[in-house]
Amino acid sequence: MAANGNCLISNDWICGEYVRTRGQELTDAVLQHIGITVASVVLGLLVALPLALLARRWRSVAGPVLGLTTVLYTVPSLAMFSLLVPVFGLSAAVVVTGLVLYSLTILVRNILAGLAAVPEEAREAARGMGYGPVRLLFGVELPLALPALMAGLRIATVSTVSLTTVGAIIGYGGLGNLIYEGMRSYFKAQVLTASVLCVVLAVGADVLLLLIQRLLTPWTRTRRSAGRRAGRPAGTEAVAA
């Protein structure tokens, strides 16, 4: 306890004094991190949905869309951000655009898989009740595809939180900025605190999305427990349980 005030000088990994005196800096970094993540995931979803619908409608679109998003996913984050610098300059748009491109891979695939799993009977019933294509999509197909979509959204969000840190290379990395600065000045407490906060953000976002998913799709709960009893690999369902 006596070392409390000295931990900044002795450069300890865990330092309450750091958290106390740099609270504002940490808050700002967390807010920037959340801002970049939310913007990227929301934009990613807005782009992925029409892409998935186009890919489903026309087989000739599906191949290039899936191929291109896979290629984008392969490009390392540092290279991705660097390639976008000439387009947007040193701005947050570089990081957000890069993260949107990454999230597309997971989101498009999961939306497609979710839509493909909608039972044909449900579609037929809706058509028989006079549903047009738009109402069929938003009233029947998307709700039934929600479990797959949300699973993809959770993976995309967790990856995005983690990849945002790389944005530090151009100064828009949220908590990554603190890690980067801490690396340069050998400031252990700053690096560890920012890293831990990053993981907390990722796990928190994942749990939040899981809760939203449970609320939105109450009908899947019985099915999921039945699936588990059958001993199938739990796949994405077991995230951060």
């Binding site: 993976i155 983690s162 890690i179 560890l192 995230v239």
Partner: peptide, 24 residues
């Protein structure tokens, strides 16, 4: 559970953070 969760943990932990933590 281990095999699945280790994959999720790998996603949640930022690579950059681990590189810097190991460096320090």
């Amino acid at each position: 559970a281990l095999a699945v969760n280790i994959s999720n943990a790998g996603r949640a932990v930022p690579t950059f953070a681990v590189l810097v933590l190991l460096l320090l």
